[in-house]
């Protein structure tokens, strides 16, 4: 066989395989959206889920997902930001830093079910929190920390060294330089990183099954007392999220309209992920433009 012919065949095979992958991509995303979107009615989004009858909605699960995401970001952002700043700006090049980096890599590759089970062991059982939003948020924090830390570290490292030198040469402390100059310049990248990690957190279920729990309690959206067991803001109540809901209705299979509920919820999850994915970059770019625009105000 001559070289030209091999070349053509190779190109053919590559295009063929790529074609299959593209069909697969379109098929998967199309399937989710086509089967799910028709069920995304206001009724579906705004009514309680049913435990054995058809026609239930996902109101509480949607709220729980958002609430858990918010709490997770509130806990994990300061820690990840601190860790990322340390790694990008302070960490000396030695065995200890190497060890810490390896540690973070290990944490990021741990199966989320293991993270969830650890959360169950430590928070639900050991600390006696029970299945609760707090336990779920803490487990999600572990799940989120390594990704968020490395996203933020990348963003910080992207700020040109000349900016730091400018700050140091003015007699600013390293910390002041980081806070006042490096972080604002890294903000677009940090925001992109946070939103991307938020998409991952939003769809995570394995880490939540044994921490935030698989059942919803009665939730009262007019009860603003966070210590009341029925308050929607109570962080000690168990809370099922959208992703956990899909898993639960499919494995239990009690409600007759499993497929309808799952398809609708899946579509919602995927739409949110799409919004997060594209929104993250768009928002990052927009902020970057605002920061560096020729005219302020």
């Amino acid at each position: 066989m001559n070289a030209k012919k091999t070349n053509r065949i190779a190109a053919g095979v590559i295009y063929f395989l790529v074609g299959i992958v593209i069909l697969l991509l379109i098929g998967i995303i199309g399937n989710i959206l086509i089967t799910g979107v028709p069920h995304l009615s206001w009724h579906f989004l705004s009514s309680e889920s049913s435990s054995f009858k058809a026609g239930g909605g996902i109101r509480d699960q949607l709220f729980n997902s958002l609430y858990l995401l918010l709490l997770t970001l509130l806990i994990s952002l300061p820690i990840a930001l601190g860790a990322a700043i340390y790694l990008a700006e302070y960490a000396p090049d030695n065995w200890f830093t190497q060890l810490i980096r390896t540690t973070i890599e290990i944490l990021s590759s741990l199966p989320s079910i293991v993270v969830g089970l650890f959360g169950y062991l430590l928070f639900v059982v050991q600390f006696g929190l029970g299945f609760s939003i707090l336990a779920g948020a803490l487990a999600l924090t572990f799940f989120n920390l390594p990704t968020l830390t490395s996203n933020i570290e990348e963003a910080i490292k992207g700020v040109p060294q000349t900016q730091r030198e400018a700050g140091w040469a003015l007699g600013l402390s390293n910390w002041k330089t980081i806070r006042g100059i490096v972080l604002p310049a890294a903000l677009p990248g940090i925001i992109t990183g946070v939103i991307l990690s938020a998409g991952r957190v939003f769809g995570e279920a394995a880490a939540l099954i044994y921490t935030a729990g698989q059942s919803g309690s009665t939730v009262d959206y007019s009860n603003w007392n966070i210590f009341s067991p029925t308050s929607f803001l109570n962080i000690m109540r168990p809370a099922e999220t959208l992703a956990v809901h899909i898993w639960k209705v499919n494995t239990e299979g009690i409600i007759p309209d499993v497929n309808v509920v799952s398809a609708g919820t899946s579509a919602l999850l995927v739409i949110v992920v799409i919004i997060f994915n594209f929104g993250a970059r768009a928002l990052g770019n927009w902020i970057y433009k605002r920061l560096t625009a020729a005219k302020i105000k």
Binding site: P160, T162, W168, L170, G171, I181
Partner: peptide, 29 residues
């Protein structure tokens, strides 16, 4: 060193103003 650098200023090869307003560039420190 912070006090020292305030007494001994430095200008670099590549202009490196902060991505802030002209006024803030001067007043920041």
């Amino acid at each position: 060193v912070y006090e020292l650098r305030k007494a001994i200023g430095m200008v670099f090869q590549k202009p490196n103003p902060f991505p802030k307003s002209i006024r803030e560039n001067i007043t920041y420190a």
